[in-house]
């Protein structure tokens, strides 16, 4: 099978869906002629024109609100927040408006809107450009929150997100854009609400999302050398959480490690701990462990940043200590 980058995979998803459905319109900063700072919208302006690939002023709250108004009146907007950190200036529209409009209206309208954005540390971007904020949004009923870890899922899930009638916060990762993976030429989609077991194992279940899935895989390889068989689950969807896949694995391995780049406290790991202990308490041989970013803002120093973020060795160490 051919291999393409995560960024190219996303670009293909947008391209194919826009060809199929004339009501899809893109709104965001520098996404037009420039093609997006991570090249996700490359060439779309040339193909679909300024009418469908709209460069907005730097007005995140404003254009997310516009996306909502457009979604309520027949369009399928795919909006782009260049960095998830910038979603903080659009919190009113995302949390109070987009997520609640269908419910508040008593189900009168769907909001078929995608908010694409990217998160993650590891690039020395400092405290305001490195956060992983998915857990914050997963707290809000009315939003789907997903974070694909590879090109195949990125393309298939973006297509599903665009076709979904509910608003989807689609979180990419800045350090995955130029990683490659197998993506078939033919049409496919990936459902939004399923976790994926990407490695089978017997002794421990490692659950991770986004870039941390790759760290979990590496850790599992290393653990294998020491005779420890780790199962790795790519969570993919933060909201809703696919508990079936998780519980099946937990009941087999009886040990769980949760890995996320979001800060440890109040991250989605905490939610999973609560749910797993409730549903599978008798199966657990050890307390559930979390490997997550420290509860400090991301420092600029690359050395310190590395210490804040989870590393492969942290996962290995935690598993061995169980």
């Amino acid at each position: 099978m051919r291999t393409i980058t995560y960024s190219e995979a996303l670009n293909e998803a947008l391209h194919e869906e826009m060809q199929k459905d004339g009501n899809i319109v893109l709104l965001g900063e520098d996404i037009g002629q420039y093609g997006g700072v991570f090249k996700v919208t490359k060439n779309l302006f040339e193909e679909f024109g300024a009418k469908r690939v709209v460069d907005t002023p730097i007005s995140e709250n404003g254009f997310i609100g516009m996306g909502l108004g457009a979604a309520m009146t027949g369009l399928r907007p795919v909006t782009e927040l260049m960095w998830i950190d910038f979603a903080m200036v659009a919190m009113d529209q995302i949390v109070n408006q987009v997520a609640k409009m269908k419910y508040m209206s008593g189900g009168q309208v769907n909001v078929p809107m995608v908010i694409r954005t990217q998160e993650g540390a590891g690039r020395g971007n400092g405290a305001q450009h490195s956060q992983s904020l998915e857990s914050m949004f997963a707290q809000v009923p009315g939003l789907k929150v997903v974070s694909p870890s590879n090109p195949y899922d990125a393309k298939g899930m973006l297509k599903s997100a665009i076709r979904d009638e509910a608003p989807v916060l689609f979180i990419e990762n800045k350090l995955l854009y130029f990683t490659k993976g197998e993506v078939p030429e033919q049409e496919y989609t990936v459902t939004l609400d399923k976790a994926s077991v990407i490695r089978n194992g017997e002794d421990v279940t490692i659950i991770a999302n986004s870039r941390m899935v790759h760290f979990a895989q590496e850790a599992a390889e290393e653990l294998k050398q020491d005779g420890i068989s780790a199962e790795v689950i790519d969570l993919r969807s933060i909201s809703p959480i696919d508990m079936d896949t998780i519980l099946t694995s937990v009941k087999k391995t009886c040990r769980v490690v949760l890995v996320h780049e979001a800060h440890r406290s109040f991250g989605w790991g905490a939610e999973l701990v609560a749910r797993i202990q409730k549903e599978a308490f008798d199966y657990l041989d050890t307390p559930i462990e979390r490997v997550a970013s420290e509860d400090v803002p991301f420092p600029y120093s690359l050395k310190l940043e590395k210490e804040v973020m989870p590393q492969v060795q942290d996962i290995v160490r935690v598993v061995k200590g169980m």
């Binding site: 404003g62 609100g65 996306g67 457009a70 979604a71 907007p77 209206s105």
Partner: peptide
């Protein structure tokens, strides 16, 4: 929609206008 957040309905109307133009 009426709105409980002061000012929040403004961009939503602009989005509806965008949609009408589109």
């Amino acid at each position: 929609g009426a709105n409980g957040i002061v000012g929040a309905g403004i961009p939503i109307a602009v989005g509806a206008a965008f949609s009408a133009q589109y």
